[in-house]
Design a protein around this nucleic acid. Structure first.
Lengths: 153, 153
DNA sequence: GCCGCCGTACTCGGATAGCACTTGTCCGAGTTACTATGG
DNA sequence: CCATAGTAACTCGGACAAGTGCTATCCGAGTACGGCGGC
């Protein structure tokens, strides 16, 4: 899985705490990441409707909606793309008595099993939101949001 | 995910039906796959203890144990490796007040959420065996095992 | 003092190289089955 | 007819290139802020 997923998730949590637009350079400096590349990934989140981008001075990226309505799955799919990890190429159609025209991705038993597993993975990710992560961190380290907000200010 | 996973899974099902060693060239010809590359992947299954390799004429690959004891997860991890898809690089340690020495992969809330999702995925895959796939296919197409066995004979 | 204009500096956004990993290929070591030969 | 030694062919196994996608970088278009001049 792309490493940018980790960066995007942590950045979303930070943005949830700050609450106002922050430039990608400042966001990247927080973790010592390459600013331009983080910017490229945050653009993916903008296209997915997770973030809003504000140009000009005092601009930057901010959450587009409530952290409670942004699931981890939303962020992951925004970075990795909507395609599932396992893709059935329909090699059954190339077998001696295979039917090239059949819809193998839908009928293949193996593809179905892999799809079931991936669905469980997506369901688990969809059940956790950015707000949940924030709440868990705050319970463990109550001063974290204020400290982060101050650093970015 | 690597495309070889699909090839390995289908090949395991075929081997379960045939029941005796089959060369990688013959196995690859069944789906029109590159023989040498399929061989390379089947070697992964041998190292994982899923297949046994028999050299010389009349040799090839065969299942090392009962199909009911080979889960889809076994095959996937044999090809993809044991590392999880999401790897926590511990960027929290690079934050302004981060602790480089802390065990971030274990304590990070985001890493925990991703690990939970991946665990659900693995559990789903571990619950399905090659024998289950074979049984489902046979129920749907009763003549399939015999037809496959005959083609490889 | 207040309003409007301009320049500036900062932001995002997309187009452009470098690198790692998956994919694909090849040839050599080892082993087994077959064959020919001798008893 | 049977045992045996030799040969030959077929197998896996690991070492060697090419293509694709992720990683990283740069520069240009656009916009809001701050300063300046005029009213």
């Amino acid at each position: 899985m792309s490493e940018g997923v980790e960066w995007a998730l942590h950045t979303c949590v930070n943005l949830a705490w700050v609450g106002r637009p922050v430039g990608s350079a400042r966001l990247a400096a927080f973790y010592g990441l390459p600013p331009a590349y983080l910017n490229k990934r945050l653009q993916n989140l903008v296209r997915a409707g997770i973030l809003t981008s504000v140009p000009g001075p005092k601009g930057g990226f901010a959450l587009a909606r409530d952290p409670a309505s942004i699931s981890l799955l939303d962020v992951v799919t925004a970075i990795e793309g909507p395609d599932p990890a396992f893709r059935c190429t329909g090699i059954l159609g190339d077998s001696p008595w295979g039917d090239k025209t059949a819809d193998h991705p839908s009928t293949c038993v193996i593809a179905a099993a892999m799809r079931r597993a991936e669905l469980a993975w997506r369901r688990e990710l969809a059940g956790q939101t950015i707000a949940d992560v924030c709440a868990t961190v705050e319970r463990r380290a109550p001063g974290e949001p204020e400290r982060t907000r101050r650093w970015f200010g």
